[in-house]
Nucleic acid binder design. Structure first.
Lengths: 172, 172
DNA sequence: TGTCAGGTAACAATCATTGTGTGTTAGCCT
DNA sequence: AGGCTAACACACAATGATTGTTACCTGACA
């Protein structure tokens, strides 16, 4: 993703307005590698600008996605994630326990749809997801208390409890 | 997934009750290759048993998932899908336009986490998703009307309209 | 057949996300 | 600088998917 200044220029060149709220979101996203959900972006943005609304955050994120500046990601953790890294082809590691997502930079270009297996679909490049446990969750493999603690920092709360989608549990 | 009769026996052997509602759901799922959502299972079940509730359907589906008889699948189409095919290792083809999901039986066992790329995650087998357009959506590439028609048959309605999650749009 | 653990269903809640309406403003023109 | 106007931002409330709660009901076994 580009720098906030480049994004501002891009917005202007497209006839879109460069509002303080948007600039704030640009700054928040820039350099973020944690694949934040909209809610998390909202929290960060509010730290700089208390009056910004969640709706504005959603809108701006979807705009950036349309412009191709960020990628939208749904890995079954209950909320959509936004990925500012669109310059490198990559896949994802997903923690089943806390929902954390990390980039996986690997070349799976050998992966192709076998002849006859495509059922007539026209498809693009495949997405690969490795599900498992992140280092933090391995470390506190015992307790629930501590897991909650590190979840509340930056990720989807309480995966696999109430009102939360289960992750995509393909036969694993 | 097993036959309805086998499932009934399994339930009994586990001390679970074999109710008419559950049997109805077993029948609906058996042989279904369309990766139905809970809503779709509910519709089908209601055709046989008008009084069954959506809640019961969700409960039974999650039970079957716990027992390992079906797999839960979230491919970003807005609702969870249930996959009765747990006997064959497979991946998925997802239509970006209508949300249809098809099994992709292919051996991607060569796919491994490169050394050093795992960031300390402990992971299992990867999931591979190919996104694109299904034959039906290619056929009516023009109209919206007809697309709606074939969506309403058996899949998530109106992907990419209101209240619907966007699919996982990894850089494609 | 009676008992009872466990299943059902009506109801309402919850979360993530988005539509609506109204006041505000960025960007441009003069 | 001042004004215009489409585009924005925000408060509010709705929506779809999913699940908790509670009170009633029923299958399975004695």
């Amino acid at each position: 993703m580009r720098t906030p200044a480049e994004l501002a220029a891009l917005y202007r060149s497209q006839g879109r307005k460069v509002t303080p709220q948007r600039q704030c979101i640009f700054r928040v996203l820039h350099g973020d590698e944690t694949h934040p959900s909209a809610e998390v972006v909202y929290e960060s943005a509010r730290r700089e600008m208390e009056t910004i609304s969640l709706k504005t955050v959603y809108q701006t994120l979807h705009e950036l996605a349309e412009l191709g500046e960020i990628a939208v990601l749904d890995v079954g953790t209950g909320s959509i994630r936004f990925d500012p890294n669109v310059d490198t082809v990559h896949h994802h590691l997903v923690c089943r326990s806390c929902g954390r997502v990390r980039d996986l930079v690997a070349d799976f270009s050998g992966l192709e749809l076998p002849d006859g297996a495509g059922h007539g679909f026209e498809v693009g490049a495949p997405e690969v997801v490795f599900r498992g446990r992140c280092p933090a969750c391995i470390a506190d493999a015992d307790g629930d208390q501590r897991r909650k603690q590190h979840q509340q920092v930056n990720f989807d709360p309480q995966i696999s409890t109430n009102h939360q989608r289960r992750g995509a549990l393909c036969p694993s």
